[in-house]
Amino acid sequence: MTLLDIENLRVRYPDTHGYYEAVRGISFRLGSERLGLVGESGSGKSSVGRAIMRLLPDGVKIEADRLDLEGEDILAAPEKRMLFLRGKTMSMILQDPRFSLNPLVPVGRQIMEVYLEHVKRDVTQARARALEMLAQVRINDPERTFDLYPHEISGGMGQRVMIAMMLIAGPRLVIADEPTSALDVTVRRSVLEILDKLVTETGAGLLLISHDLAVVSQFCDRVLILYKGRIVEEIDARDLARARHPYTQALLASIPDMRHPRSHLPMLDRDAIACLDSTP
């Protein structure tokens, strides 16, 4: 079943001379699976994620031949409908819990808020569910954590709170925009595992945005490689080793490998890739 169906998506930011096109016509489909979206900084990953949620600032142009969520045209949906879809049908996990949680609201309330908005206006139930979610994201003492402020919890806990918040209403599609890149390497894995498990259990679709091909290839079924706003390669995670596009190969080559240590990692040869820029 197709959750998300995108055809020829373009995102353009206004700038001093007209528009800057950050996403240049990408197409893909997402079912109940884990799809990775990989690319270097500035390649347009976040722009794709935010375009799907329609969360880009006013004045940014989003165009697509098709942008359907469970068969519903998102671009044509009125803002009111979007309010219903966001958080309920699709949700987004942001990068850095230090900035993406409201610093003056206790984390428990921030989680409850989604439940109250989308599931039921019942504070007792919402609180119970929020505590459940906190336990599910493996927070040791949910009761205590519930009343803490974001500055009182660690980054790893913050990101787990974020996951709890974005999954409490049972969304069908979860977009995770670099959910672990602000975290300490030691907690990255556990946070990703929690996210992976919860999403798989509910049968939702996951779009995992990352610049880290190694991480994505471990946690995803399929990988899209984004370069300068275009998808240059779409490949099963298992088959990554057989990637054909030079950019993907170059990315792969720059992953350090413990088993075959090298004195230095190769760099991207941008000029070589630039020649291929016209390829779809």
Binding site: M82, L94, N102, V114, H118, M166
Partner: peptide
């Protein structure tokens, strides 16, 4: 701020994003 994006991503109405989130931070 990023937390405003979070609030919007939760599907909160504009009024709630402004008054229950951004405004709380300027009090």
């Amino acid at each position: 701020q990023e937390y405003v994006v979070t609030a919007k991503a939760k599907g909160l109405s504009r009024g709630k994003v402004i008054w229950a989130h951004a405004f709380v931070n300027i009090r």
